[in-house]
């Protein structure tokens, strides 16, 4: 137990990710399309705005110090996560709860919400001890 709480405490984004996973698991179990859409969409909006805010900041702050490739590396994880989370949301909302598409969608949504949170956390001004990307989860 102690080890777990230590692991969670080591990076502030870890508890957030765990919470989000639980949230989307809950949403998947409730299996109400509109609820999933509103709350899931809200979560994407929240995590997505945070990421976008950070990444825009970072891109402008660095000025000419970064080349196009480095900027792309900053943007890709979050932007991909937003796109895939929206695709997942679409899958979940348009398919009935018992279908394979729904299950895949719910899984993809959870993974992408977690990835989006990570992408935002990687760019936070109080950087984790690891380098921007490539660190432990």
């Amino acid at each position: 137990m102690e080890r777990i709480s230590k692991w969670l405490g080591a990076r502030p984004h870890r508890p957030t990710v765990i919470n989000l996973i639980m949230l989307s698991a809950l949403l998947a179990i409730i299996s109400s399309a509109s609820l999933y859409g509103v709350i899931g969409g809200g979560a994407v909006l929240l995590a997505g705005s945070y990421f976008l805010f950070r990444v825009v900041n970072r891109t402008f702050a660095s000025g000419d110090a970064m080349n196009f490739y480095q900027i792309a590396l900053l943007w890709i994880p979050g932007v991909l996560a937003i796109c895939l989370a929206l695709v997942a949301l679409l899958l979940v909302i348009t398919n009935s709860a018992a279908s394979l598409a729904y299950a895949l969608g719910a899984f993809l949504f959870t993974a992408e919400l977690a990835m989006l949170t990570l992408a935002g956390a990687d760019l936070s001004p109080d950087p984790a001890p690891h380098p921007v990307a490539g660190g432990a989860i």
Binding site: I76, L80, A81, L108, A133, I137
Partner: peptide, 17 residues
């Protein structure tokens, strides 16, 4: 395409994993 994108995403964000 989604599986390709997933792999790419991990390869860029967390290549060590």
């Amino acid at each position: 395409v989604i599986t390709i994108l997933l792999v790419v995403q991990v390869a860029i964000a967390r290549p060590n994993l």
